[in-house]
Simulated assay, not measured.
Amino acid sequence: MSRFDKIEPNALFKALESATPADTLPSTGKLLDVVRFNEDGLLPAIAQQYDTGEVLMMAWMNREALEETLTTQRVCYYSRSRQKLWRKGETSGQQQQLKTAALDCDGDTLLLKVDQTGPACHTGRRSCFYISLDAHKALISSVPLIDPEALYGKK
């Protein structure tokens, strides 16, 4: 039994602030019970290339998508536009294999370290973060690696 098992669910993430790597934590299921999914039942998930640190994309996960990702090690998101699970790469082949998953200190954001096959962005770029901004202008910082029509067919 963990010292955290006796803590009220709404106080768990606060209590985890004092945790150390030597502590035994509650099960993943118990932690997911208190994760702060938004009013739509979604959690923002940031995908980062595990070996380079490159931030690839941000998407949403519901509990089902997160549990599937943790179980299969293949990243699954929740598509708000389609209102269904979205297994990354199911149409493009550009999959993400999970290396690690970590919740932030508030339990309201997830960081996924992944091994990305090809581009992560639907535009064919490696990363979705390609519009660079400064105080005066915006610039495009990368070109597509693959034509989006080759990934998804004509729309």
Rank of each mutant, 00 (worst) to 15 (best):
S141L: 10
P144V: 01
K137Q: 13
Q116T: 02
T123F: 03
V114H: 07
K137I: 00
A138R: 05
G124Q: 07
V143K: 14
V143Q: 14
A120S: 14
R126C: 00
C121N: 06
H136C: 08
L133F: 13
C121E: 04
S132E: 14
P144H: 01
A138Q: 11
H136N: 13
T123Q: 07
L151R: 05
T123G: 03
D147C: 12
G124N: 08
L145S: 12
L151G: 10
C121R: 07
C121L: 04
I140G: 00
L133T: 09
I146T: 15
I146S: 12
L145Y: 04
V143L: 15
L139P: 00
A138F: 03
G124W: 04
A135K: 12
L139M: 11
D115T: 07
L112M: 12
K137R: 12
K137A: 12
P148I: 12
K137M: 07
R125C: 07
Y130I: 05
F129S: 04
P119Q: 13
Q116N: 03
D115S: 11
Y130P: 06
T123L: 06
T123P: 00
S132K: 13
S141T: 14
L151C: 09
S141E: 13
Q116D: 01
A150R: 14
H122F: 01
C121V: 06
R126T: 06
L139R: 15
T117Y: 12
Y130V: 04
D115Y: 01
